[in-house]
Amino acid sequence: MKDIMTIIIRLTVSCLMAGAVMGATFIITSDAKKQNKYKNEQKVSYGLLGYDVSKGIPAEVKLHELFRYVVTTGDELSVGYLVPTGHGEHGGFTFISISLDGSFIGQYPVDIDHASVRDESDRDQAILTALGKGKTIRYADQTVIATANDQRTAYLLSGKFPGFKTFIHVMLALEPDFTILGLEIMEHEEDPGLGAEIKEDYFKNQFIGKSFAAVKYLEVDKVPLPDDYRQALDGKISKEEVALVQQNYKDKNIYALTGATISSVSVTNGVKGITKKFAYRIGILDAVIQEQNIAVPF
């Protein structure tokens, strides 16, 4: 009996000590971690838009974040978007609720600032307060709309889809007419040397310049990648030549990676899915914003 008591006390004390050490480390590192993640995303976003963060971003280029939510009221489902309103840092946010058939339900001003909107729990709390009782929300995804001089220049979509083993997280940049501007693989666990090649330039750059009409019916061809195309994709020749070669291959399918057909097909289908769904959603959202005269900065 005495043994049990000592064991209990010692285990409890050691657990408390372990907890204190871990807690202290978490508090010290959490800010740096968040900062890193945000910086990395920012860098990739601007990179896809063709800007280099280290060289500075032109002042007229602005990024506006849109957060899509699924709203449940009782057993009714609807879609909601948290969008910025007004201009610049002074503008607020508003939550636009849209029914599944695309008609406007309501607009709720959300009290949150531009810094805390990136924190998921803060954001969810603010939206729930704005919506009132009896509703639950689930975060779906995030879209960034880039503007230059108040004209839309690009959409940045983050999404995920199943790869060979687990989900592949990507960031996709689209032009306003949904032509693909660029693709970046953020996280994946494909096999090294095989499926992991999806993040290499000669695969992911194949998507650049594919028009929306081409993306809709994009397939994977299991034939070797032509040499001139590979040179262009790897960026080993001058920019003008790259543009010429890419013009030739603009309407071609995606060339599969050797030994990684499944990864190639899943990326192609994933990009196809993200683009098609986004084109549909942004159409509905734009119609609602226009119809209701909501002042948005994009």
């Binding site: 010692r10 657990c15 372990a18 590192t29």
Partner: peptide, 29 residues
């Protein structure tokens, strides 16, 4: 206590692994 050696070891290792995991995530992304 000799009877709870292994749980104590596991707890110790888990603590230090968590620490290095957090530190690496923050400073070596």
């Amino acid at each position: 206590h000799p009877r709870i050696r292994i749980p104590s070891y596991t707890l110790t290792i888990a603590t230090w692994v968590t620490v290095i995991d957090l530190v690496m995530a923050a400073y070596m992304p």
